[in-house]
Structures are given as C-alpha cells and as structure tokens.
Design a protein around this nucleic acid. Structure first.
Length: 490
RNA sequence: GCGGCCGUAGUCUAGCCUGGUAGGACGUGGGCCUGCCACGCCCAAGGUCCCGGGUUCAAAUCCCGGCGGCCGCACCA
C-alpha cells in the first residue's frame, strides 16, 4: 500500500490551499479536524452542487437542513447511546485496549450477547481467566467509550449530543413534512451537513475526521410496495459493479441483479445504481468503484442489509457511501421513545415506513476526487477535474505585462468575474502561469495577446490538451458557459 | 489506545549518529526581462529548528513527557 499519491495530494493541499489542519497556530490542537481553504471549499461546494443535480433533483428528493445539536432522547431512540459504544477492557500492565466481547469470544469460543451488562462481561473475563493477549497482564473492569460528543445546553446544562449522523433529523422531521404535504411514497428525504464522532484515532487527513460533512439520503418507502415503474425504468439498465465475498467484481444491470437475487429489492438496486452513476459522472474511474455487500459482522447495528460503495486509492479501498436497508428500525424507535405516531397511510393501509439510505462521506469524496484526478507526466502536473467541478473555472492572462495587454485583459476579466469563478494573473512568464493553473485544475485559460488589440479575439487554452482556440471576446461568455456545463443525463 | 518511524521558513528538505543556536531548492514581495507552455537576471522578506522539562559551559542535535503526522494492530454508524 504505497501512499505516494496520498502524500502528493497532501503536499498540494497544503501548498495551494485545498485543506490544512484546523487551529494550526496553536499547540495541542486535537487531531481529526481540518479546515478547507479557498480551493478546497470551492471544490467541496461544486461536489455538493453536482450531488444536488444528479442525485437530489434527478430523483425528486426533498432536502432538509436539521440542527447539529440534538436532544438526548433522539439517541436513546436511535440506539446510539447504547450501541454506539463498545465494551472495552484495558490491560493493567501494558495499557493495551481491547473490545471485551470480541476478546472473550476469541479466547473462549463463547458468544457474548450484545446486551450483556458490563459487570457480567467482566465477570466472564475473570471466570474464564482471560488475560492480555499482548503481555499476559491482568485486565481491567469493562467500561464503555461512547463515540458521540456530549454537550450541555443552557443554564441547566441539559444533556444533548452532537449528531453522529445527519439522518436522525430526517426521521424526526418526517412527521411534519409528511403532514404538510410530502406524503407520496417512496419519499426520499436528504440532507447535507456536518456530523461528529469522537474517533479514537483519526488519521489520513480527510479520510477519518472527528467533524465531517455527510450528504445523506433516507428513502422512506412502503415495504409492501416496491419501486414505481417510472423510477425503475430510468436506471434498471445501469450496470452495477457488485463485489461479492471480497475482491471479485461482477458487472450486472440493476434489473439482472434483482432477478438473480443479488440485490433483494428493486428499490435497493435503483438507489445503488443512482449513487454509483453519480460517482461515474463526477469523474471517478468506474473500474475503480465497487459496491461491496457487507457480511453480518460488518454491518452497523441498525442495518438489515448493507453495501459500501468503495473506491480504490493509494491507501487501499476507501468507503465513500454506506448504503443500508434500515427497515423500520428508526421510525419504530422514535415512535416508542417519543410516543408520537409516525405511521403513514398508503393504498388504504397504515404502515411504518421502511428506510433505505445512502450515506455519503463528502470529505472523503473530495479527497478521492483530488487523488484520482491529479496526474503527472514528469514535466506537467495537471489536476484533471471535470470542468464543472473545477474550483477556478477560468483564468484571464495578458500574454505579457505591458503594451496595453494587462488593461485589455483586466477588461475581459471584469466581464467574466460575476458569472464565473475567474482569476486574473499577470505575473511570471505565460508558460509558468499555465503550469500553476494546471496544478489546481483550471480548465480554461483566456489569453489576451497582440492580436486581441487588433480584432478583439482571445485564445482559450484547454487544460487537458493545451490546445488553443481563438474566440471573439463577444462570444466568450457563451463559449465558457457551454464548456463548463454539466453533462446531460436522462 | 498500544507498538514502530517521524516533526527544521508557505512547500520539499540538508544538518542530528560524532552537541558549539541553521543551509539549499521551489514558492512569496519588489525591480528588470519576457510575442504562448515552469528552464532568465537582480534585490528582499520569511525560521518559537512542534511544545515543555532535564543533562551540559553550550541542545535543532542527547534524555523524559506532551501534542501532531505516517504505518501496523485495534476501532470504523
């Protein structure tokens, strides 16, 4: 696992301002927090806009924005207070920490029930004589480490938590959203926003953060009513890259996957196709994408079936999207704890909606976009982002910094700067400017030369081919709009 | 959290083993030059050598602790 590409992305991120450590002027700042600089923020925003286009609007989803701090009861209902913490024991001699239940199972072969109280687990450790696998030392009592950040709210210090996933507000807000008119199923709710997890050892830059962006889709549906034909027709022929047991990938259309039982329901196959296609559109090499079905021991506590959309990187396969069939776990839980009725009405029948979710890691996706698109042929280093994702869309350059060219170039820049993310660059030789702009993925460079002063045309240089085309200044805006437009999908 | 390696201007790095308070490259600012793909010239700014403590006449260099980074284990909704 060579991390060379990772190191190159990291160096570029620091030097050109894509992202960098949070609070970095202070010593002792905790790990797992990163800030987006000007370019990274722009890239992240474009990624989210693409998501809105190819996932949210394409499917007719309903986007909400919930609060980050949520009441304790939310996480009683969601199971996070109980299940988001693992029973832990530590070695009293060497300090190593172990999952108590797994250690017991490994050493004794006995299954440790998930709900067993900590004191019982500890009693088992003593009874079975289990000791530290590293040094043979004695093990401590069993404790829990919850990965949620606890906060206290108001003068009373009411117990609340930073959400560990964005989706809980979608489940909770469902009641109101449903009542005020969004009452057709399937009902895909979605949200882009921050989540927080107190990871034990955050690592690898944007790949594992304690504060991070998610873009989550929670499709609420009637379990007796599989996907409508209108949606199904759109993506049933898309070829899914399904990974079974480990490595081998089978390419199979969504329709065949359902027919052959590889994916149980149409609604799952459809949304798996939707999300895989999204990553293909934004420029991730599809041969480096797989949808891996998780085994029983890997699934989150609330999931009935899980697929991870994974992408191959220099650090191995990275999970970008968790796709989970959550059943009625969430709404039933919130009904039980809140006492509110979250059933819906469809075709003369009351039911608790089931949920299929697409939980996307935004920061990880941004990282993968950088790593997959950063190319180097020895002389030239180019960030080959699709033009519609580029943080800077166009640069305006006077060929030389004299003879009236800068004035004319500035005029061109002024005409573009509101409609596009444009920069003006006059320093250094023209070749050097092209190189600097290639590195941050600027897809088009508009150069004002001596001919411009004669006939009011400029050259537009293509980042990927370095070829230049002469375009009248009067047509520049239309030319760029076309070149920067989103690819069409039906 | 455990173990290994590591932490020097914005970035990459020399120096560390064999203590004597830092040198380069790129980048940045200014000037010159420049008719299209980083190769030009001149000048300048920029360093708490991660932080704290210890040893020493003297610490970037040796020792301890902390923080951070990478890798492995563990964990990963």
């Amino acid at each position: 696992m060579s991390g060379r590409a990772y190191d190159e992305v990291m160096e570029l991120a620091l030097r050109r301002g894509f992202y960098f450590p949070s609070c970095e002027i202070y010593d002792g700042a905790p790990a797992g927090f990163w800030d987006y600089g000007p370019l990274g923020n722009a890239l992240k925003n474009r990624y989210v806009e693409a998501w809105r286009r190819y996932v949210v609007r394409y499917d007719g989803m309903v986007e909400l924005d919930g609060s980050v701090i949520m009441a304790k009861d939310v996480f009683v209902a969601s199971g996070h207070l109980e299940s988001f913490a693992d029973p832990i024991t530590r070695c009293l001699r060497c300090g190593s920490v172990f999952r108590a239940d797994r250690l017991l199972q490994e050493k004794t072969g006995k299954i440790v029930p998930e709900r067993l109280p900590d004191s019982e687990i500890y009693a088992m450790i003593l009874r079975e004589g289990v000791r530290c696998p590293s040094c043979g030392g004695e093990l401590s009592e069993v404790t829990r480490f919850n990965m949620m950040f606890r906060v206290s709210v108001g003068g009373e210090g009411a117990e609340a938590y930073l959400r560990p996933e964005t989706c809980q507000s979608l489940f909770i807000d469902f009641l109101r959203v449903y009542k005020i008119g969004w009452s057709r199923f399937p009902l895909p709710l979605c949200q882009f926003g921050k989540s927080f997890r107190n990871e034990i050892s955050p690592r690898q830059g944007l790949l594992r953060l304690r504060e991070f962006y998610q873009a989550e889709v929670e499709v609420l549906f009637d379990p007796e009513d599989d996907l409508d034909e209108r949606r199904w027709a759109r993506l049933k022929d898309h070829r899914l890259r399904l990974a079974h047991d480990g490595e081998s990938v089978t390419e199979i259309t969504a329709e065949e996957a359902v027919r052959e039982g590889l994916v149980p329901m149409r609604i799952e196959a459809y949304y798996l196709a939707l999300i895989q296609r999204f990553y293909e559109i934004i420029g991730i090499d599809r041969t480096r994408i797989r949808l891996r079905r998780l085994g029983e021991d890997e699934k989150p506590f609330y999931a009935r079936e899980s697929w991870d959309l994974e992408v191959q990187t220099s650090l191995g396969w990275v999970e970008l999207v968790a796709c989970n069939y959550r059943g009625d776990y969430d709404l039933s839980g919130h009904m039980r704890v809140s006492g509110k009725d979250l059933t819906a009405y469809n075709r003369g029948r009351k039911f608790v909606p089931h949920v299929f979710e697409l939980s996307m890691g935004v920061d990880r996706s941004v990282y993968v976009l950088l790593e997959h698109n950063l190319t180097s042929d020895g002389r030239r280093r180019v960030l080959r982002l699709p033009p519609f994702l580029a943080p800077v869309q166009v640069a305006v350059l006077p060929l030389v910094d004299r003879d009236g060219l800068p004035e004319k170039a500035m005029e061109v820049y002024e005409a573009l700067r509101i409609d596009f993310d444009a920069v003006y660059e006059a320093d250094d030789t023209i070749g050097k400017r092209y190189r600097m702009l290639d590195e941050i993925g600027v897809p088009f460079c508009v150069t004002v030369d001596y001919q411009t002063l004669q006939d009011d045309t400029v050259t537009v240089r293509d980042r990927d081919t370095t070829r230049q085309e002469r375009v009248p200044v009067s047509e520049l805006k239309a030319w760029l709009s076309r070149a920067l437009s989103y690819p069409d999908v039906r």
